[in-house]
């Protein structure tokens, strides 16, 4: 098994831990953090392919990750602000309780 395989398997592990957390936990903050973990797993893939794959343009993988981190930062900020707004409204942050927008 090559290092690339290993890296990809590790990122799969991180992704699925994040997915399981996002699906199972009722606390919205933890759901958001699970999604952050999934994003991190994707970033690991970028770096793994940059490091071990045939890279025609040096540095492309890194640039991808930098942008992804920037967008993830924005996402986390907005997400947590939303959580605080929801908390102020319904006095808890259980995700299954925020169903006001259902049809």
């Amino acid at each position: 098994m090559s290092p690339l395989h290993l890296c990809l398997l590790i990122s799969t592990g991180l992704f699925c831990i994040g997915l399981a957390g996002a699906l199972a936990r009722s606390n919205t903050i933890l759901v958001l953090l699970g999604i952050e973990l999934m994003l991190n797993a994707a970033n690991i893939n970028f770096i793994a392919f940059w490091r071990f794959g045939p890279s025609p343009v040096a540095g492309n993988g890194m640039i991808f990750v930098l942008f992804a981190i920037a967008v993830a930062a924005a996402e986390a900020a907005v997400g947590l602000a939303l959580i605080i707004a929801v908390y102020r409204h319904q006095k808890n942050i259980r995700l299954q309780d925020s169903t006001t927008l259902k049809g």
Binding site: S98, T99, K102, G103
Partner: peptide, 18 residues
């Protein structure tokens, strides 16, 4: 038509993700 389809929208984020 929206009212018919809105039954699928439970409002539970977990469900959508699943």
């Amino acid at each position: 038509s929206g009212q018919r389809y809105s039954k699928a929208q439970t409002g539970e984020a977990h469900g959508y993700l699943r």
